[in-house]
Design a protein around this nucleic acid. Structure first.
Lengths: 345, 345
DNA sequence: ACAATAAATCTAAACGTTTAAATGGCTAAA
DNA sequence: TTTAGCCATTTAAACGTTTAGATTTATTGT
């Protein structure tokens, strides 16, 4: 037996299907008596609207496509949570496509071209499903400009850079600067930095923040304090070794992510260098484990939820044909824990 | 201007819309010449099919609803990745609803009733969108039986127990038993266990596995070695204290999750008890951080990806009206790291 | 009581597909 | 040359809604 439709309830309530639609949507006045009859019929027949039909007619699905480069990477779930949060409040639903790049290509996604085809597939799937718009969640990546063609549908990127579309990001340069400012406020002046892969745009921005701090606070500038890491633990380990080997080692290290801090801790442990006693360290990301390490590490927390939320909000404006108002960049927040020593004390 | 539809291409190729549909779907023979004309028109007009219309007619969306109790909880992303993996291979798409229970109710979700309304909302959203089936991803929870009514649509649960529907789980009892067997193989006999919350079904199963090991391996049975934790770090910390205070402390601890192991490590550190030197520990979950702790911890890894994959597979069978074949339970795998000492050496 | 107006309801087309059934043209057998 | 049978194609209805515009019914003011 067919599921009950608007037609059945029209029949039962002895009105036209139009009237039923009007009471369902409140789009026109209907006499209280009629209204009652209709709602009763709805009740009795246990009618459930069919959004597919509605979407077809309205040419609007209230569904947005979310493309995640890899949902198992730490940033994605929180961002999606933010997207979801906004979606809940505006009756928008999420069609999720996971590119699984981490599993398919490996951690540090190579050339953009390699995964363009995955992205294109995802987009065309979503377009066939008539999503109202798309959010693309990157990871630490290179420029995504021109990556995909969405056939005129609105798209906003987050956690990934692009020049031809809206892109929600936090201010990497500022975040890095603030981390430095914090270290300086604790009396540190000889501060090293361990970067992520340099083909990643955030890495470059964060390095700029470092330079700015060095300049503004008139810290001793020493190229030997600048180390190029690759986001992975081992590079943190290795580069900390190099740093400790310096004739004049730094008193603090700013690491561009928490994972590399694990390596920092490990090397320090092996060399018998106490943290934060002899060496302070600040990470980036505020990963769950940064609170579990010994010592727990001070880190720059990313506004992931907020980014997702704001991406969705902007997209919603775009979908409704509104200009997107001034974009406030979500801000990072330093999470103070126990890996930084206050040299003033 | 309207998007180009099957109608436009029929016009251009000078055939009926039915014919177009036939070449699109390959559902009937069409003369090569006609076929060419149609595909050319498709090409020229850059036609993109509209799955919404197709779904309406076919009464099948090729979309499945995924309800996650909380997508930011560690198990969800991997499970979704598994779901996605299967989905990719069968052209099934994922409509995601995140209940955000962790944020809305707090970590140890209280009474089932409290979140029933969220679950019900999610389900009715999904049903309106005409999903072909639903997967429900729980966290460590109590019995979900009777939680929601899906109006006859297929549903499968994973990482959450239920009696009235299909539910994909790993064998907690066996996993726990195997962890014990491993410890025994390393010469441990006096083994303590720190459980999760006891209203959680996995906790109970894992405890059973512990008992079975104690019996089968004829280990000394001592109720003092059985500690009730609550999944959180602090309980690991506190209970380890109690265990170390015992007149005859255990040589090894089996913790029902990795988070509590963090507490174990911390207490051991404070008491100057070396791990694994004087105390061995095994966790559960194989969280990313278990490799980052010092020492890195040996832990029972969960087959999360596989669970998602299998949940989707079963659902797919159900959707196609097939009986679901014998369910092979995905298996946990012990990840050997450095937190267990081999007493034989 | 009767227009004139306002309010409620209905008719019918449309959204973009799929598909059963009908039609037409061709081939091959008689 | 007819005819049966097959193949390719078309016709038309249907999926479950929304929504202009037409029509009916109710409410005014005189």
């Amino acid at each position: 037996m067919r599921k009950t439709s608007i037609k059945d309830i029209a029949l039962k309530a002895n009105v036209s299907i139009a009237t039923v639609s009007y009471v369902l949507n409140g789009t026109r006045n209907v006499r209280p008596e009629t209204h009652r009859r209709v709602t009763e019929a709805i009740e009795e027949l246990n009618y459930k609207p069919n959004d597919i039909a509605k979407s077809l007619k309205r040419n609007r699905t209230n569904t947005i496509g979310v493309i995640a480069e890899d949902i198992t990477v730490f940033n994605a779930p929180e961002i999606i949570d933010g997207i979801n949060d906004y979606g809940d409040r505006h009756e928008l639903q999420i069609l999720l496509v996971n590119l699984r790049l981490d599993k398919r290509i490996g951690r540090n996604f190579g050339d953009t071209d390699v995964y363009r085809k995955y992205a294109e597939n995802a987009v065309s799937e979503l377009l066939r499903k008539q999503v109202d718009g798309i959010i693309y969640i990157g990871v630490h990546t290179r420029d995504l400009t021109g990556l995909i063609d969405v056939e005129g549908k609105p798209i906003v990127y987050t956690y990934g850079y692009t020049q031809d579309n809206l892109s929600i990001q936090f201010n990497d340069e500022q975040a890095s600067y603030e981390a430095m400012a914090y270290l300086v406020s604790k009396g540190h002046r000889r501060i090293a930095i361990i970067s992520g892969l340099m083909d990643s745009i955030p890495s470059r921005h964060r390095l700029k923040g470092y330079y700015r701090a060095v300049t503004e606070f008139e810290l001793p500038f020493d190229p030997l304090l600048i180390k190029m890491g690759d986001w992975e633990r081992d590079s943190g380990y290795r580069l900390t070794g190099e740093l400790l080997d310096l004739p004049e080692p730094p008193t603090a290290i700013l690491s561009m992510n928490d994972v590399m801090v694990v390596g920092v801790l490990q090397m320090a442990g092996e060399r018998g260098v106490s943290i934060p006693g002899e060496l302070s360290v600040i990470g980036f990301d505020n990963r769950e484990f940064s609170d579990y390490l010994q010592p727990s590490i001070t880190t720059m927390g990313l506004p992931l939820h907020e980014m997702g939320f704001q991406a969705m909000e902007s997209l919603y404006q775009l979908i409704n044909g509104n200009q997107v108002h001034e974009l406030k960049m979500p801000e990072c927040r330093l999470i103070e824990r126990s890996s930084v020593k206050d040299l003033h004390r």
